[in-house]
Amino acid sequence: MRFTRRELLTASSGAGLALALPRRSYAASAYPEKNITFIIPYGAGGGFDIFARAIAPAMEKRLPHPVNIVPMNIPTGGGGRAMAQMQRTRPDGYMIGVFPIPGALILQEEQDARGFNLYEFTWLGSIGPGDTYAIGVRADSPIRSVADMQELSKTRQVSFTCTGPDGTSYMASVIACNLLGINAKYITGYAGSNDYIVAAMRGDGDAVIAANTSLRRFQGPDGIRIIATLEKESTLPGIPDATDLGQPDLGLITIERMVAGPPGLPADLKAILTNALDEAVRDPHIAAWATSIGVPWAPNPPGRADAIFREQAAFFEQWKGLLVES
C-alpha cells in the first residue's frame, strides 16, 4: 500500500490533532507538573525574602499536584530585572513573583526602558496585610512631636534617612513630608529598613519614616522614639495618628507584598494559584509565625487582588508628579 504525500500529511496532521486535543485538556488538570519558580525582587534575608520563603511551602501544600515552589532572588536594578523577567516569561503558571506595591510603580516610571508594565501583570493576592508607616526620632532627640518638626523646618531642612530614590521608604518620606508641610532633605543610599533606622539612631539624620512593624522593633530608651504613626487609627497607645495630625491621607501610605503572575496567565491557572495563596495566608502556622516576629496578621479578604492593586496605583498616580520630579 502506498500513500501520496498529501494523504500522508493529512493523516499525520489529523493524528497530531488527535494527540494534541486530549493533551490540552489533560494539561489544565495536570497543572502543576513541575516546580514553580517564585521570584523575589530583593536579596536573600530581607523582609520580602522572608515572607516569600515562609509562604512558599504553605502554598505548595495547596496545589493540586505535589511540586515545589522554589524562591529565587533577583535583586538586580532595585528589583527592575525581576519585573522585566516576569513581563517576558511564558504565561504557563511556572513563574510567579512578589512585588512591593506601590513602590514598584516608581521603579516602572524610572526604568521606562526595561519595558515592564505592572498594570498588565496577573495579580493573585497579597502576602499578609499591607504595612503602614510611622515617624521616629532618636530616643534623646529634642524633637518631641510632629509640631516640633514643622517648627524646626522653618529654620532649616529636617533630614530623613531612607533608601535610594526608587525605594518605598523614600516614597513614603516624600509624600508624608509634603502632606505635613515639612521642609525636608533625604539622606539616601541605605540598603534596607534596618540600615536606615539604625542610621537615624546613630544621628545620621534627624528622623526616619519606616514601616510600623520595622520601626517598632527599635523602640526603646537607647533606640527610637515613635512620635507619630501614619495609621488612620493609632495602634500605639498615646501616639498621635494620621487623623490627629489632621492629614487622614497619611493613612493611605502603605506597602503591600503583592503576588503576581505574568501578563495573560490563563484563568484556570490563575484560579489555582490564587486559591493556594489565599489558603496559605490563612494557614494557622503562618499566622503564628507572623505574630512571633511582631507582624499583626490580618490577611486581606480573598479575591481582592485586582482591587488592591488599583487602589494603590490610583494613590501612586496622585503623587507621581512629585515623586518622579524629586
Binding site: A44, G46, A54, N194, G220
Partner: peptide, 24 residues
C-alpha cells in the same frame, strides 16, 4: 539586623524563619 556581608544576609533570613527577630 545589619548584615556585614552576603553570608550574614542569608543567615539573617534563617534567623527570622525560626522566629528570632534580630534587633536590640
Amino acid at each position: 539586623g545589619l548584615p556585614g556581608g552576603a553570608e550574614m544576609a542569608v543567615f539573617l533570613g534563617l534567623l527570622v524563619l525560626h522566629g528570632m527577630q534580630p534587633g536590640p
